[in-house]
Deep mutational scan, measured.
Amino acid sequence: MQRVNMIMAESPGLITICLLGYLLSAECTVFLDHENANKILNRPKRYNSGKLEEFVQGNLERECMEEKCSFEEAREVFENTERTTEFWKQYVDGDQCESNPCLNGGSCKDDINSYECWCPFGFEGKNCELDVTCNIKNGRCEQFCKNSADNKVVCSCTEGYRLAENQKSCEPAVPFPCGRVSVSQTSKLTRAETVFPDVDYVNSTEAETILDNITQSTQSFNDFTRVVGGEDAKPGQFPWQVVLNGKVDAFCGGSIVNEKWIVTAAHCVETGVKITVVAGEHNIEETEHTEQKRNVIRIIPHHNYNAAINKYNHDIALLELDEPLVLNSYVTPICIADKEYTNIFLKFGSGYVSGWGRVFHKGRSALVLQYLRVPLVDRATCLRSTKFTIYNNMFCAGFHEGGRDSCQGDSGGPHVTEVEGTSFLTGIISWGEECAMKGKYGIYTKVSRYVNWIKEKTKLT
């Protein structure tokens, strides 16, 4: 034993070699072989497995989906700052455009905790909710729209109204504003409101030439003092309507412009014939205590009207009353817009006519005020429907199939267009061939041609 100890002390290297040989010859039971080890760690190889990531292109799944990435790591994937920024906006807080917040056709661009709407022409605001041009839906104005110097929408209202708090709607500024039905039992019968379409306001006024200088022999019209197929109006439903009495009662109609003036057809009036105007009328054979009678003290036909040349060209006249009318729910003026808007309103496509005229061709006159909704007829169809001249200051309205029309005794009465609950004068009943005849239409004086003249002559002093 002493000898062994001496050998170990003198030859430590020998001992180490012996131990190493023993270990190498022993069977290893701690580690699995290569094949079995792979069965336990069965993990798919990654895209760049075996390579240094710093030297390969980034992978979106590896960089940002398996674990949260930084902007720089995302930049490695896209290799483009702009594309990385677009991805980053949604990656950080989701897609803010998912709810489609942009209105009126706006395009949404996502941002971090926010979004941006790219608005089409005519709109602005956070969600493109603000109209900035009158060309689109009248700028959301209830009545009139004008573009300011910086191309912003400025709404306005006709006389007797003021802008509401929203700067879009119009509200009454006087007790009985024009064009409004205020009798409670008839307010439910107000005709369907007309909503502004998209309009090209630059070209809204037709490029028409008034044929002022045409000389033409007097034409022989049949029954051209021209509501057939209409309905009984309720008291106060058309408070701007008046009836004219002269040699015979209810020979023509008219509309209240203001307390002192009536507008009617020029062919209705004769110099030297006494005319009485009755406002607030409903049943011409009954006294309903809503009527107001006034005498006409002055007749002003349009300066281009000449019955000797043509009885229905420039067929418009103004009547001055001896005493002002007292405005109330049964006696209310009709609204008159400017030339541009009167023309736009007419193009809405349908209007209402009213009167006490004959209820059928050569038949009896109506006792109760009649009204009828009539569609506008395109000019080409209008011209083809008659052998008589249709001037540019006239328009056609009615039904091709016949059966409904204005008729004798309705002449001078109103053709009105309702705009968001307020009625505007767009025409004056003038003439036609018979009444409600198939293929024939009622012919009306186009008020847009005469609004400046009306307003100039009827100013209240």
Rank of each mutant, 00 (worst) to 15 (best):
N80P: 15
D232S: 11
V92P: 10
E401D: 14
S430R: 02
V326H: 12
P333T: 03
Y161D: 01
D93N: 06
L383K: 12
F31V: 15
G413K: 06
S255F: 01
G412R: 03
V451Q: 03
L244D: 00
L189K: 12
Y91H: 15
R46D: 07
L321A: 01
Y305N: 03
V183Q: 11
N310G: 07
K362D: 14
F123I: 04
N313S: 10
K459S: 15
G105C: 02
W431Q: 13
R226M: 12
E72Q: 15
V277N: 00
V199P: 11
C128F: 00
S255N: 03
C69K: 03
Q167M: 14
S70L: 07
V4C: 12
I429V: 09
L383N: 09
G230Y: 11
D150Y: 07
N213P: 14
I256K: 01
G229I: 10
C28I: 02
H400I: 14
N36W: 06
L14M: 09
F345W: 06
N452C: 04
F144R: 00
I336E: 00
K137W: 05
H361I: 13
D131V: 06
Y161P: 00
P172T: 06
E124I: 05
F238M: 10
L130Q: 14
A9I: 09
T186L: 06
A149V: 12
S220A: 08
G246E: 04
I15S: 04
D150M: 09
K247E: 09
F78H: 15
D200V: 11
K455I: 07
F348W: 09
A366L: 10
S217W: 10
D322K: 04
R140F: 07
P333L: 00
T461Y: 10
K234I: 10
S350C: 07
L367A: 13
C435W: 03
C396N: 01
D131N: 12
T84W: 03
F348K: 08
Q241V: 09
N452F: 05
Y201T: 12
Y47I: 12
S411I: 14
V227C: 08
I300S: 03
T133M: 05
A380R: 07
E86T: 15
V331W: 00
G254Y: 00
C252P: 00
K137S: 11
T218A: 07
T190C: 05
E165Y: 11
K387R: 11
P235K: 10
C268Y: 01
C102N: 00
C435M: 03
L14W: 11
N313E: 09
E323K: 14
Q237I: 08
G349W: 05
T389L: 12
N313H: 13
G355K: 13
F87H: 15
G13W: 06
I262E: 01
S220F: 09
Q185D: 09
R226E: 15
I454D: 00
G442I: 10
R46V: 13
Y352N: 06
E79L: 04
E259N: 06
G179S: 01
F348A: 14
E73D: 15
F388P: 07
T426S: 03
S204Y: 13
A279C: 03
E286H: 10
T194Q: 12
V273H: 12
E171H: 07
N245I: 11
S329R: 12
D200W: 09
C145H: 01
P197V: 11
K51P: 15
E401N: 10
A9Y: 12
E285K: 12
C102S: 01
I300C: 04
G105W: 02
N100S: 11
T194Y: 13
V227L: 11
P375W: 06
I7G: 14
I15P: 04
W240T: 01
P333G: 03
F121E: 15
F71E: 15
N452K: 13
Y330W: 14
C69L: 03
T381M: 12
P44I: 11
T389I: 12
G13R: 07
D405W: 08
L460M: 15
G427C: 00
F121M: 11
N328T: 12
N42H: 11
K274C: 04
R191F: 08
K293P: 04
N306Q: 09
H361F: 09
V416K: 01
C155E: 01
L327H: 03
R43G: 15
Q57G: 14
A192I: 08
T389S: 07
I210F: 09
E165K: 13
I7L: 10
I429L: 11
W88C: 05
N310S: 13
N113Q: 12
K387Q: 14
T342V: 03
N328I: 00
T186D: 12
T218L: 10
I344S: 14
F31S: 15
R449C: 11
E340F: 11
K234L: 09
S187I: 11
I428P: 00
K109F: 05
G230F: 12
K446D: 07
L318N: 00
G105Q: 05
T426L: 02
R364I: 08
K274W: 04
L376F: 10
V416L: 06
K89P: 15
D405S: 15
N304P: 02
H289G: 13
M437W: 13
L319D: 01
V56D: 04
D405H: 14
E286I: 11
I17T: 04
I136S: 13
H289D: 09
K152Y: 08
T190Y: 07
Y22D: 02
S411W: 14
L383Y: 11
D223T: 13
G236M: 06
I428L: 10
V153G: 05
P235C: 03
G13Q: 10
C141H: 00
I214Q: 12
A308P: 06
F348S: 14
I112N: 07
L32M: 14
L372W: 15
F55G: 10
I17W: 12
C157G: 00
I112Y: 07
E66A: 06
T426V: 00
C119P: 01
L244K: 01
P301D: 03
H34C: 04
S329E: 15
H282M: 08
V77H: 15
F424I: 01
E418D: 15
Y341V: 04
D198V: 11
F424E: 00
Y115A: 01
Y330Q: 06
T290P: 05
H302Y: 06
R191V: 11
V154P: 03
C134Y: 02
C97G: 01
N104Y: 02
G357A: 14
L19Y: 06
S114W: 04
L372T: 15
I344L: 13
S448N: 05
M437L: 15
R62L: 04
L325M: 04
T190S: 12
K347I: 03
F55H: 15
K440E: 14
Q408D: 12
E79C: 04
Q167R: 07
G413M: 11
I344F: 12
A337L: 01
Q96R: 08
T276D: 05
A436R: 14
P120I: 06
R404Q: 06
V30D: 15
G351V: 01
K146T: 14
P120L: 08
L383V: 08
N135F: 05
S182Y: 09
V377S: 03
E73N: 15
L211Y: 08
N104I: 00
Q96D: 08
Y305R: 10
Y441V: 12
L321I: 07
R191K: 13
R294Q: 02
E320H: 03
E270D: 13
T276L: 05
C157R: 00
G21K: 03
W261T: 00
Y391E: 12
V153E: 03
V30I: 13
S148F: 05
I300G: 00
V77C: 05
V416M: 12
V227D: 12
L130N: 10
A337I: 01
H314E: 03
K247T: 10
L327T: 06
Q237S: 07
V416S: 08
K293L: 10
E98M: 07
P172M: 06
T81P: 15
F251K: 09
E72T: 11
F360K: 14
N38E: 15
N104R: 03
T422C: 06
T209W: 08
I214W: 08
I299T: 13
P120H: 05
T85F: 06
V374I: 09
C155G: 00
H267Q: 06
P239A: 03
E456C: 06
S70M: 10
D223K: 09
I40C: 05
N127I: 05
K126S: 10
Y330R: 12
T332V: 14
T381P: 05
L24N: 03
L20T: 03
T190W: 11
R379H: 11
N393R: 03
N147Y: 11
I284E: 05
I300E: 05
Y22W: 14
T461C: 10
V199I: 10
R364Q: 11
I17H: 03
C18D: 02
G413H: 12
L244S: 00
A26L: 04
S99V: 05
C117P: 01
S430C: 05
P177M: 01
E54I: 12
T194W: 12
